[in-house]
């Protein structure tokens, strides 16, 4: 039996020569035909819209930066941002309550989610707007008939306040479920390690669990915010002075219904686009330590790339 020498064994392990593949890409006629069809369809839709006789693009342009429209836009942004922030805070509180060992807390939190996710937001908005019918005076004091410390007339519930209450409290119910899922997704070993070090409870939540839960929480939260930007249009039912309310008022005067709705739609599209970009950067920030390949340099380069471009490089 022949035993190969170490030198010849090495030679078989390392093949110095490079054999290029240079294979041609297989053409895909079906995909090409599909692409052309989709392109033709898109151009046709755009053309039809642009040339439609009853869409007055000059009106769209005239009203795009109109004073009242911009004010309505401001209300929409304010409603979205404040409701979302409040919704996240309520959601965090309710999520922690739902995960608490205290049964009463769990039931109260569960009932809140159940009620506000189980009734239509439109109904909730109408309810908050008409709160004065049930409680003409809103008072704060010792419950069950004790002395009152502070009270206001229900007339302080303006459409804006009613909108905020409805949107924030409704959002809190959805956010509580998103945050709860995020907290539950963090490895229990993380909490144990923190407890074993003697970490205060507050720090365990704020420095160990939540930063990791953020990775799970952020994508659906971004979704919620994008949805919220448009859901605010529901407050038009209670004369909320938001973007939709304003354009409705304008077209009731000038009868340019479609043109005015296009003005509003373009603004909603712009807002959601900005929110999407913001979401992308937030998600990057909380992926710290979870993408092993990230070095400082590649981090910068990746951040510069748009979401769509990035997908291609990391399928």
């Amino acid at each position: 039996m022949m035993v190969s020498s170490p030198a010849s064994r090495e030679a078989t392990l390392i093949q110095e020569e490079v054999i290029p593949l240079n294979a041609r890409k297989r053409p895909s006629w079906g995909r090409l035909a599909g692409g052309i069809a989709a392109l033709v369809f898109a151009v046709w839709v755009a053309y039809t819209l642009f040339m439609a006789p009853n869409i007055h693009w000059d009106i769209v342009v005239d009203f795009f930066l109109d004073g009242p429209v911009l004010e309505g836009l401001g209300v929409t942004i304010a409603l979205s941002v404040i409701s979302m922030v409040a919704g996240v805070l309520i959601g965090l509180l309710v999520a922690v309550m739902q995960l608490s060992p205290n049964k009463v807390m769990r039931y109260v939190a569960g009932a809140y989610s159940w009620f506000f996710r189980g009734t239509p937001l439109l109904v909730q908005l109408l309810f908050w707007f008409n709160l004065g019918i049930i409680f003409p005076r809103l008072e704060l004091g010792i419950p069950f008939g004790g002395p009152k410390l502070f009270g206001v007339e229900a007339s302080i519930i303006t459409p804006f306040i009613a909108g905020l209450l409805g949107l924030a409290i409704n959002e809190g119910a959805y956010m509580s479920q998103i945050i709860r899922a995020g907290i539950l997704a963090v490895d229990p070993g993380q909490r144990e390690a923190a407890e074993a070090m003697g970490m205060p409870r507050r720090n365990i939540m704020l420095r160990v669990v939540l930063p990791q839960a953020m990775r799970i929480i952020l994508p659906p939260t971004g979704n919620q915010f994008i949805s919220m930007l448009k859901t605010t249009s529901l407050v038009s039912i209670i004369a909320g002075a938001d973007l939709l309310t304003v354009v409705q008022r304008i077209y009731l005067g000038n009868f340019e219904v479609i043109s005015m709705l296009i003005v509003a739609s373009i603004w909603y599209l712009l807002l959601t686009t900005i929110a999407t970009i913001g979401q992308y950067f937030l998600e990057k920030r909380y992926s710290k330590g979870f993408d092993a390949s990230i070095t400082v340099k590649s981090k910068v380069i990746k951040n510069l790339a748009l979401p769509g471009q990035r997908k291609k490089t990391t399928p």
Partner: peptide, 19 residues
């Protein structure tokens, strides 16, 4: 937690804070 501060623990699965 004051008592735990004087007891170090090393886990099978490390449990470092990944972030």
């Amino acid at each position: 937690r004051q008592q735990r501060q004087r007891i170090g623990m090393v886990f099978q699965r490390f449990n470092l804070f990944p972030h």
